[in-house]
């Protein structure tokens, strides 16, 4: 299983998101610290999930960090997160 697949699976199981997008952005960071030849080090993740409702930005990101703690301690060097509650979806990006 690729890192992207693992991220997608763990977040899907933990948060049951109505939308999930996991993009490997490693190519844009090729050649600098943390990058590896095979990629899979830098990810952009967008999630729409009810679990984020009523939570602050810090709380939302901490929730995702906890679910992906193994990946963050291992192969994932950078993780860019857009975490949206269902009633916020469709609004312009915060």
């Amino acid at each position: 299983m690729t890192v992207a697949e693992t991220i997608t699976r763990k977040l899907s199981e933990a948060l049951a998101p109505s939308e999930i997008q996991v993009v490997d952005d490693s190519a844009r960071h090729a050649g600098h610290s943390g990058a590896r030849p095979g990629g899979e080090t830098h990810f952009n993740v967008t999630l729409v999930a009810a679990a984020f409702a009523g939570k602050s930005r810090l709380e939302r990101q901490r929730l995702v960090h906890a679910i992906l703690s193994d990946e963050l301690a291992g192969p994932v060097h950078a993780l860019s997160l857009r975490l949206i509650a269902p009633d916020e979806a469709g609004r312009p990006a915060p």
């Binding site: 930005r57 810090l58 990101q61 860019s80 997160l81 857009r82 990006a93 915060p94």
Partner: peptide
Amino acid sequence: GGCDIVREMYA
């Protein structure tokens, strides 16, 4: 926060 949060808060 980090980069995402600071950018969102600025916007």
